[in-house]
Design a protein around this nucleic acid. Structure first.
Lengths: 205, 205
DNA sequence: ATTATCTATAGATCTATAGATAATGC
DNA sequence: ATTATCTATAGATCTATAGATAATGC
């Protein structure tokens, strides 16, 4: 009852999210989550019964928020190069605001087959329609000879790879002093531009 | 003394490597490693004292083997596009033979600052010279107007991102039935070609 | 003698639950 | 009465070590 502005269940969710993102599922213990939230460990289980439940609730919400902007952006009337640029920009900015999500997502992908099935369903649910449309669009562009023969899957993989890896590798770039506190913001912006240009070049004949 | 062909210390190393790659540092217990190797858990500690030691020894060796082909390939006499193709091909094939390394490497990068410092030093040690030469070459090509203005760092990031992410995302592609047992080999080969073409397109003016 | 291997166990977690007590809403 | 919170504890790991015993190399 210290913080009158929000209840303990909410606090637990917030602290758990932070710890799961920082340390991953296994290293974030319900004991530590409770400590961070300012309650006993038993209370965490009172509200969410199992650690697995708690995690899944957080991960589910996070994954939706993470993918939504990318999935929802409908730019079907744009020329293809601009559509591509818009897609990358939106996804890049979504990741920039959730810089720990790529690693969390990958960890879950590696963790178990069931978790992967869950993620697959979630991706299909959120991105399925957009993905189908995108694939069709790419096919149409290829058929009409506007771009070189690539598949929608290839381009999607390119986008995911370039954007997610960049943020996962940022800490290394900082260690190597390629990225510093001074140039950080500019570097990120330039990288976004580079990725957009790379992808646009990549589809050119 | 069951397996006469190799000693137990070696067996432990091999089983530990497999388990660390499969489950990650935290979920691979010395208990399980011992069980897999066919000895008691105490013996694992007899040979390597701590789990951390054991892991570091394996990771160190694995990281060297993983980066070496990429670092050592000297193609400085080739035209730049061919040099790029060669670099990607070599790194792609190295990852293809160590498909779990990208995730292990990322996990360690995320795990702690000390581990990151260690990785930074290792990368510098193995790739430092090559990296410097590559950067100079890129600058020269840009200066002479052969390619569009990009940095060596950008291209390195592109290569690492596209190649490592592809193998980390493979399980998802399999879940989505984009990759199956039948097309797997061909798909991987085509992806390698696509990445090479993308990077070559990307440097064109 | 030395090295390899085992048994047994201490000590540190961690998750989950049972059961007691305090706070809150009627 | 119901809901929120705490104390205490069971039971499952896991790492690391001490101390005993078996195997090996002179």
């Amino acid at each position: 009852m210290k913080d009158s502005e929000e209840n303990m269940e909410q606090r637990i969710l917030e602290c758990a999210e932070k710890l799961f993102l920082d340390k991953g599922y296994n290293l974030a213990s319900t004991t530590e989550i409770a400590k961070e939230a300012g309650c006993t460990q038993a209370l965490v289980h009172y509200y969410f019964r199992t650690k697995e439940n708690l995690f899944q609730k957080i991960f589910d919400r996070k994954l939706s928020l993470f993918l939504a902007p990318f999935a929802e952006s409908d730019n079907s009337t744009l020329p293809f190069a601009e559509l591509l640029e818009s897609k990358v920009r939106i996804f890049f900015d979504s990741v920039a605001q959730n810089q720990k999500m790529p690693f969390m997502l990958l960890s879950e992908i590696m963790s178990s087959t069931t978790q992967r099935a869950y993620i697959r369903d979630k991706i299909t649910e959120i991105c399925g329609v957009m993905s189908l449309e995108f694939n069709r669009r790419v096919e149409a562009e290829v058929a009409s000879g506007n771009i070189r023969p690539v598949t929608g899957v290839d381009i999607m993989l390119d986008i995911f790879s370039l954007v997610m890896s960049f943020f996962m590798l940022l800490p290394v770039l900082e260690d190597l002093d390629v990225v510093t506190d001074e140039n950080r913001e500019a570097f990120i912006k330039e990288r976004r531009t580079h990725i957009i240009e790379t992808l646009i070049h990549c589809i050119k004949k």
